[in-house]
Simulated scan of single mutants.
Amino acid sequence: MVIRLVIDFSMTVLMLVAMAYHITGNAIHELIGVFLLVLFLVHNILNRRWYKAIFKGKHNVRRILSLAVNLLFLVSITVVMVSSVPISQDILPSTPINNDMVLRQIHVLTSYWGFIFMAIHIGLSWGTILNAARKMTGITNPSIILTITLRVIAVLIVVYGVQASFEREIVSKLTIYNPFGWGFNGSTSEFILDYLSIMGIYIAGSHYALKIVQKQGKDRANLS
């Protein structure tokens, strides 16, 4: 579990760095992509049992949601990695290609979708992550004050994330390709804060949506 958490945390950090193309430049962006590819492969190897169990057992709402998000995340990251090869300028500069505009469009769009699916993926697993963190820190019975504090922080992150989504034109980046590149205003710390907050929207949203679905499932089971 510790190894998986470290790998997942590293992938999240590298994904954020990869999104900061206008800050890092192309060479570092491609190098980060290579590291992401390696961690992505290791992540899938460690979770290979998940693939074997896809069609086994009962498929409740939680499992269907998790399956759909995981597959969409897998497809988006695979497309990002495959499309990066022919448009590489530093690591594979000798790759011949005449018109790379379409591939660049696919690469950019799927990278932002992958970013969103990654956040939802984390949100659906947030309960497991919290339980693992509690065991490692020895906090098995969190206080009411701590719980309320964390939820208030979550609300503030979501509110700020919504504002950052508009300022960073996330909807446009998920639907439109800009051949001249997306401009970036602000410092590196502002970029990190904005994109972490945007991630927070989907992490919190998927986590609490899952809790509501699970509660409704339990209520139905009790009534039956």
Rank of each mutant, 00 (worst) to 15 (best):
K218L: 14
F9T: 13
I201G: 00
K211D: 03
K218T: 13
V17W: 02
S83C: 10
E167D: 15
Y208T: 01
K218C: 00
M199I: 10
T140A: 09
S88C: 14
S165D: 08
Y195I: 01
H107C: 12
K56W: 01
Y177T: 07
Y21V: 05
T24C: 07
L16I: 14
Y21G: 03
W113H: 12
G33R: 04
V2Y: 02
N99T: 12
H207Y: 09
A27D: 14
V152I: 14
G25M: 01
G123N: 05
L67S: 11
T140D: 14
Y208K: 00
L16R: 09
Y112N: 13
V42H: 09
V34W: 02
L146N: 10
G25Q: 03
I129H: 06
G127F: 01
F184V: 13
L146A: 14
P179C: 11
V159N: 01
L74G: 00
W113I: 15
L174G: 10
N141Y: 08
I87M: 11
T12S: 14
K173V: 09
A132R: 03
V75C: 03
A154Q: 10
S94T: 09
G25D: 09
A221P: 01
A164E: 06
G205L: 10
K135E: 11
L196Y: 08
V69C: 06
V155F: 07
F191I: 06
G33I: 01
G114D: 03
F180D: 12
P179K: 03
I203M: 10
M199V: 04
F73D: 01
T24R: 03
F191P: 04
V42S: 07
I116L: 15
I148D: 02
I176N: 08
I170T: 09
K135S: 14
T140P: 00
N98Y: 14
Q105W: 06
I91F: 10
R104H: 09
L65P: 00
L92A: 15
M15H: 02
S224K: 08
N26G: 02
S88L: 13
